Simulated scan of single mutants.
Amino acid sequence: MTRREVLLAAAGGVVAIGAGGAWGWRASVGSQEAYRLYQAALRAPLPQDPAAADLIRAATLAANGHNTQPWRFRVGPGTIDILPDMTRATPVVDPDDHHLFVSLGCAAENLARAGTAAGRPGVLETGADGMIRYTFTVGEPRPDALSAAIPARQSCRAVYDGRPVAPDAIEALQRAALGDGVRCVILTERSAMARLGDLVVAGNDAQMGDPAFSSELKHWLRFNPASAMRHGDGLYGAAAGSPVLPDPLGHLAFDLFVTAAGEADKYAAQMRSSAGAAIFFGAAADRASWIAVGRACQRFALTATALGLKLAFVNQPVEVARLRPDLAALAGEPGLRPDAVLRFGYGPARPFSPRRPVGAVLA
């Protein structure tokens, strides 16, 4: 499941144009403290006797493309279904809905992990149409490190510090990604990472040259806390290290300052700073396999979080179809379609992305 942070270089000059005074500025962008409280409520620990809504809240904290949260949840007696929400598809970056179903898999993994941890253990089943059903019972709570990592996991689109990750941690990440026919190739050797960085930049160049891609991306951008909380979705600029701006200035700054060259430089620096990357391959090019990849990506991400690592998707070589063969060859899996790429390493803390309330995602 892909997110793009906004590069707002020189935005300070734009900000100076008609900020409207301190009061007007605060009214238009909202309060960072209000956003912190909003996030704390979303990521609060599960209660001792959780309802289905509590488990769904944990599921919605999963990784997903552009933070569109393309899911609906339907509650039945002892069941929670996860359904695709096609109104939240991103047809330019994800024309076959691949990322959408990977995102559903990420949510399903969170749901099952939270259920087991909170005393609602169960099983996940995936239908051919991409619907996922979690059938659960009441049992003893069994918390573990991965369930504890659910509220803390995030896609950290920052420059990391370049430190290598210990071999035992790499092995733990590799084990986490196994299951349901998913293959995961982890790259740490610097020449391989450099080649991967070139593919990421090539994908970025292709996407940034497409006006439809930029328009779709811009639709999901949230430039300030007020906008992020109002929508409850999308790519929150502060989470990517961008300055807080009123919406009109944010859109103007995006149009003026976000360029293919600037984005390429940013991604190149991020890749150079990363300790490694993981490339995921599903068993087939179908919805059930994409969901399995999403579950594997989420286990990988929760394991990385539990180990104190940061991570972020860099899916450009997956999204630009002509680059997929080169990415598969780099991973030593020629002929397979790659499904996701995650870079990882040690990096800074950033604000969390927004989420919609449970009531807004119920079917």
Rank of each mutant, 00 (worst) to 15 (best):
T2H: 06
L7C: 02
A9W: 00
A10F: 00
A11L: 07
V14W: 06
I17C: 09
A22E: 14
W23E: 15
S31A: 02
A34L: 05
Y35C: 10
L37F: 01
A44G: 02
P47T: 09
Q48T: 14
A52R: 00
A53G: 13
A53Q: 15
D54Q: 03
I56N: 07
A62K: 06
A62F: 05
N64I: 07
H66Q: 10
T68H: 01
W71F: 05
R72F: 00
V75L: 01
I80D: 02
L83M: 08
M86S: 03
P91Y: 07
V92F: 02
D94W: 08
D94H: 06
P95M: 07
L104F: 07
C106A: 14
A107C: 14
A114M: 05
R120L: 02
L124V: 14
T126H: 05
G130M: 13
I132D: 03
I132C: 06
R133M: 07
R133S: 12
Y134M: 11
F136E: 14
E140V: 14
P141N: 07
A145Q: 12
L146E: 09
R163V: 01
P167H: 09
D168S: 12
D168I: 09
A172M: 10
A172W: 00
Q174F: 04
G179C: 11
C184Y: 05
I186D: 03
I186G: 05
A192M: 15
A194W: 03
L196C: 09
G197Q: 05
D198C: 12
L199Y: 11
A212F: 00
F213R: 00
E216D: 11
E216P: 12
L217W: 01
K218V: 13
P225S: 04
P225V: 01
A228V: 03
M229G: 00
D233Y: 06
D233I: 03
G234I: 03
V244P: 00
P246M: 04
L249G: 10
L252A: 14
L252P: 13
A260C: 12
G262Y: 01
G262A: 05
E263C: 12
E263N: 07
D265F: 09
K266L: 14
K266T: 14
S273L: 12
S273N: 10
S273H: 08
A275I: 06
A278C: 11
I279Q: 04
A283H: 07
A288G: 09
V293Q: 03
A296C: 13
A296G: 06
A296I: 10
V314G: 04
E319P: 11
L327H: 09
L327S: 14
A328N: 10
A328P: 00
L330V: 11
A331F: 10
E333P: 01
L336C: 04
V341Q: 08
P348H: 02
R355C: 02
R355K: 11
R356W: 01
V358S: 06
G359K: 06
